[in-house]
Design a protein around this nucleic acid. Structure first.
Lengths: 129, 129
DNA sequence: TGACAGTCAATGCAACTGCATTTATATCGG
DNA sequence: CCGATATAAATGCAGTTGCATTGACTGTCA
C-alpha cells in the first residue's frame, strides 16, 4: 500500500507540475479511446476503473464540461447513455502521455528489469482473482 | 495501481461494515503505539504515513477529538507538539485488528504462499529506493 | 542582537468524495 | 399487461482533501 501510494503521489505531482489534469482523466480517456466509436456506457467505464458510481458520474461530468468526452443517448436503454471520447480528448491523451511515461519510468520502472516486471505482474494478478 | 486500489476499497469496506473507523486511523495509532510514551511529532508521523501536511494535521485533529490521541506541547520546540496514543487509542487498535486481519487474509493473503510474500516484498522495495 | 530565511503546524476556501436518496427506465413473475 | 423489483445515472448534503497562505517559532549569520 505504501509503495502504490508513493507512486500515485509522485505521478500526480509530475502531471500537475506539467500543467496537466489528474491521472483519473487519463485513465478514463484511455478506456474510451480503446472502446472506439462505439463508446462505453458509464457503468462499463465504472467497472474498468474501480470507481464508485457517483464518482464516475462526476468525473464524466467534468470531462464532458471540458469537452474531452461527449454524451449520447443510448439507443437500446432509455436510462443510459453512451460516452465517447472527442477529438480534443484524444489530443489530451497524446499530450499527457510524455509526462506520464516519464513519471512511470522515473518512479516505477527505474531499477526493475523485465524479469522483475513479469514476476511482479504475476504476483499482483494472483491477488485479484 | 488497480490491485492496491482494489485492496484498499475492500479493506475499508470491511472496516466500515464492522462499525470501525478508516484504515488511516489504524495506521496513525499503530505508529504512535510503536513510538511509546515518548510519542511522535506530527511531522514525523507525516513522513511515516506519506500524508500531506494538512491532511495529517486534520487526521490528528479528528483523533484528538475522539480522544484516541493526546497533544502535549513540545519541551524543546515552541512551534511543535508531541502526539501520544491514549489508553482508548490502544483499545481501538485492539478492536480494529481482528477485522483488519481478516480483511488482509481474505483479500490479500489468500492465494499467496510465503515464497510469494517474500518475492513481492523484494520487488516492491526495489521500487522505492 | 536582530534582520532574515527556514520549519512546524493550522486554516480559509474550493474541489472532490462518500452516503443516502431520487428519478427514470427496464425486467420479471404472474 | 400489471405491479414489484432491479438497474442506470444523477444529486443534495456532509465530510475530506488539495492548495495557498498564515502565524508562530527556530536557527543562522553579520
Amino acid at each position: 500500500m505504501r509503495v502504490s501510494q508513493y507512486l500515485l503521489i509522485r505521478v500526480e505531482a509530475d502531471l500537475k507540475s506539467a500543467g496537466l489534469p489528474p491521472l483519473s482523466w487519463y485513465d478514463a480517456l484511455l478506456e474510451l479511446k480503446r472502446a472506439g466509436s462505439k463508446g462505453l456506457r458509464p457503468f462499463q467505464l465504472q467497472r474498468e476503473m474501480l470507481l464508485a458510481q457517483y464518482n464516475l458520474s462526476r468525473l464524466v461530468e467534468r470531462l464532458v464540461k471540458a469537452s474531452y468526452v461527449e454524451r449520447l443517448p443510448s439507443e437500446v436503454d432509455g436510462r443510459g447513455q453512451i460516452l465517447r471520447i472527442t477529438r480534443s480528448g484524444r489530443d489530451l491523451l497524446r499530450r499527457m502521455w510524455p509526462a506520464y511515461e516519464a513519471a512511470i519510468q522515473e518512479h516505477f520502472a527505474n531499477g526493475l528489469d523485465s524479469r522483475d516486471f513479469r514476476e511482479l505482474s504475476r504476483l499482483l494478478s494472483k491477488i485479484r482473482r
